[in-house]
């Protein structure tokens, strides 16, 4: 008789990676459509290039290391979509493709594939691109103009630099709907919320991380600035919404316990606001999520319940 000792979880459900990823894609799809409407056909092209190169990259990498292909679990598609949503629409296409390859091959594949990566592939790839090509990565196309190279200020810069003097140009409704310059998929808070609610209802993600992340960002900005309107804007624009709902909730790189999730969300929110207000970068969502990804193994060591035999 042979006994097999598998790793937990021991109870397996019908749900497969493929189904979860499909739900995430359904939740993400409206953002791509909105991005295409806001920033023109070019945005769609960037999305297509990112997804295609992520899938091809994963296929070729699996071929190269002689492993069964994993493109059918759709995780590469999700990575490609998330990366594209974090890029400005005017980004050169080869940089978009390079980003996808970095995400799928270096951040995910080389660490052992899906489930073994210590950091979120899309976030890490975005940071690598951001450090490598700072000007290209922060040249945003204004909404509803189809010229590709004109760069426009994003309101997020005002939040970082001038506390208290924010307002005027952007109404809260415009920020909520996504009618401002930014990355392809990060602008529309409304659609991100709808996507998030869909994922929570389908039990794909737990609402703890998004709520604590967004809540902490709002509270901490309010404490620092004392300006209610600015604090609402801090949550609505930039990458907080997209990051909190779709990136910070990645199963592999976020804690599993509820307490751990709370710590993860609060930590990410605090780091985001700290970078925005005191760092020399306009936006800190990517770095905050990456940092909390690195803290995740430590957070996981906090037991959710005290083992009873250790009380003495």
């Amino acid at each position: 008789m042979k006994l097999y000792a598998n790793n937990s979880p021991h109870i397996s459900g019908k749900e497969k990676t493929h189904d979860i990823m499909l739900d995430v894609i359904i939740a993400l799809a409206p953002l791509g459509i909105a991005g295409t409407i806001f920033f023109g056909f070019r945005a769609l092209l960037v999305i297509a290039v990112c997804v295609a190169s992520a899938v091809i990259g994963e296929y070729l990498f699996n071929k190269a290391i002689k492993k069964e292909t994993t493109i059918k679990d759709l995780s590469a598609v999700v990575t490609g979509l998330l990366l594209a949503y974090n890029l400005p629409s005017a980004i050169p296409l080869w940089i978009a493709a390079l980003g996808s390859l970095i995400a799928v091959v270096i951040v995910k594949g080389m660490f052992g594939g899906l489930g073994q990566n210590f950091a979120n592939p899309a976030i890490t790839a975005r940071i690598i691109l951001m450090v490598s090509f700072p000007t290209l990565m922060s040249s945003f196309t204004p909404v509803f103009s189809n010229t590709t190279v004109v760069s426009s200020a994003t309101p997020i810069k005002e939040i970082g630099l001038t506390y208290g003097s924010f307002g005027g140009e952007y109404s809260m409704l415009r920020l909520f709907l996504g009618d401002y310059a930014g990355c392809i998929g990060e602008t529309s808070a409304l659609l991100i919320l709808l996507g998030g609610i869909y994922l929570v209802l389908r039990k794909v993600i737990s609402p703890i991380i998004p709520l604590s992340f967004i809540g902490t960002t709002f509270l901490f900005t309010f404490i620092l600035s004392g300006n209610f309107k600015l604090s609402v804007a801090a949550v609505l624009c930039g990458g907080v919404m997209l990051g909190a709902v779709f990136m910070a909730t990645d199963y592999v790189t976020s804690p599993t316990s509820n307490l751990g999730k709370l710590i993860f969300g609060v930590g990410a929110g605090i780091i985001t606001v700290l970078i925005r207000s005191f760092g020399n970068l306009p936006e800190g969502v990517s770095y905050s999520i990456l940092l909390m990804n690195l803290f995740t193994p430590l957070i996981e060591k906090i037991p959710s319940r005290k083992p009873f035999f250790e009380e003495a």
Binding site: I128, V131, S132, F133, P134, L136
Partner: peptide
């Protein structure tokens, strides 16, 4: 354009 991260 050079990839700055490579010399960091």
């Amino acid at each position: 354009p050079p990839m700055l991260i490579m010399i960091l």
